[in-house]
């Protein structure tokens, strides 16, 4: 709760900056807990319904917790023509989840994102903070193993 207050105060509880507050909350908790939204409502006087509207409208927010490693497969145009859909399929197959879901062990979540702006390296993915370019479908099992290995 203290962290939430700190975030809200950082933006002076200014209602113009609720999106920024929610971004910080998302970074902190890996999702937007209801508790946090209630606190934002209390301090900024922005109605809870509007905060939910924002939380479900923008792609960077998630109401459910995401995994420790967020896998983002870029599905921008350059990546698409270079086979991004096949990469996404490969992750779904290897992790046994659908896009948008999190693995049972809470280690990986899988998302398709709209252009990471590294189009010259297409197809591009990010796992956590690491960016990988010119990815091949055949590389996916190795990549997943790398992060699973680091966890142990």
């Amino acid at each position: 709760m203290q962290n939430i207050d700190k975030i809200i105060d950082k933006w002076n509880a200014d209602s113009d900056y609720v999106i920024e507050m929610m971004q910080d909350i998302q970074d902190e908790f890996k999702h937007i807990p209801r508790k946090a939204l209630e606190q934002v409502t209390k301090k900024t006087k922005v109605p809870l319904a509007r905060l939910y509207h924002i939380a479900t409208f923008y792609k960077s927010f998630s109401l459910k917790p995401r995994g420790k490693f967020e896998i983002q497969v870029c599905t921008g145009t350059a990546c698409h023509v270079k086979g991004a859909a096949l990469i996404l399929d490969a992750f779904e197959r290897e992790l046994n989840i659908q896009t948008g879901e999190t693995t049972k062990d809470k280690l990986f979540s899988l998302e398709g994102v709209r252009c990471l702006g590294c189009c010259s390296l297409a197809p591009v993915i990010t796992i956590g903070e690491d960016l990988y370019g010119e990815v091949k479908t055949a590389d996916i099992p190795k990549l997943i193993a790398k992060y699973k290995g680091g966890e142990k």
């Binding site: 900056y17 929610m22 971004q23 924002i54 923008y58 792609k59 960077s60």
Partner: peptide, 25 residues
């Protein structure tokens, strides 16, 4: 600085300004 939150439509001028006011774009 205002940070976007992942919505393509916010590149549109009036949606962008709505987003800058802390609303859905």
């Amino acid at each position: 600085i205002h940070r976007g939150a992942g919505a393509f439509v916010c590149g549109e001028s009036s949606a962008l300004m709505a987003s800058m006011s802390g609303r859905a774009g």
